[in-house]
């Protein structure tokens, strides 16, 4: 388990490899679909310093507001692959050290991770209540009016946020490995002629 304190350096990232667990602590920023288009629409100076050396968390939280301010109620990751057309440029333009999301990303992002010293941290999809426990403070929020709660950019302090490195800065992607092997199994299933139905104990 790598215990990482944000912001991260190039060396911090290059020390990570696919399959390793991390515990992340420090300030990160949430951003998903609308945020990516916005970040690339112009240089957003108001968030640039927050993003440099930090991580963009693909997350649209459930929040609540009290006299004490905003808090995160549920905050698991959203599917990252939708940001594949944009992420490489966001990483490059804002000096991100990576993203947190789920489902992994494609070759363009993988190349950007290698080129700019960044990593893909996989959180567990649907682990919303548990992950919200590691969000200790909501510092501020950008574009809340324009994008609404799920798509706004929330600046949050996390403590011991657990994730798995599934794409590293050395050009490796766990997702590619799994896909290749499942593709082989799928091809077998598609080609195997139907065997005689057999009784089995497996419940559908």
């Amino acid at each position: 388990m790598h215990e990482l304190q944000l912001p991260l350096s190039d060396a911090d990232i290059r020390a990570l490899h696919v399959g390793e667990e991390v515990s992340l602590s420090g300030t990160i920023v949430t951003g998903r679909d609308a945020a990516h288009t916005w970040l690339l629409g112009a240089r957003r100076t108001e968030v640039a310093d927050l993003l440099r050396g930090s991580l963009l968390y693909h997350c649209g939280p459930v929040v609540s507001k009290s006299a004490a301010g905003w808090s995160f109620v549920a905050a698991g990751p959203t599917t990252s692959i939708r940001e594949e057309p944009y992420e490489a440029e966001v990483i490059k333009n804002y000096g991100l050290r990576g993203v947190i999301g789920k489902g992994g990303m494609g070759p363009k992002t993988l190349a950007a991770l290698q080129a700019h010293g960044a990593a893909y941290f996989h959180a567990i999809g649907g682990l919303a209540t548990l992950i919200a426990q590691s969000v200790h403070r909501v510092r501020q929020v950008f574009m809340l009016e324009e994008f609404g709660v799920p798509e706004a950019l929330w600046v949050i302090d996390v403590q011991d946020f657990r994730a798995l490195v599934t794409m590293d800065a050395h050009g490796h992607s766990w997702h590619d490995t799994i896909r290749e092997s499942s593709e082989g199994m799928a091809q077998q299933l598609l080609q195997t002629p139907r065997k005689k139905p057999q009784e089995n104990s497996v419940r559908p």
Partner: peptide
């Protein structure tokens, strides 16, 4: 195994969500 760890955490999350009455997943 990673699969076992993931499913165990999922079960932990389900129990905590029930106890706190907070969403199991933020994407409701």
């Amino acid at each position: 195994s990673t699969g076992r760890k993931v499913l165990d955490l999922i079960l932990e999350n389900i129990a905590l969500a029930r106890k706190q009455a907070t969403p199991i997943c933020q994407d409701t």
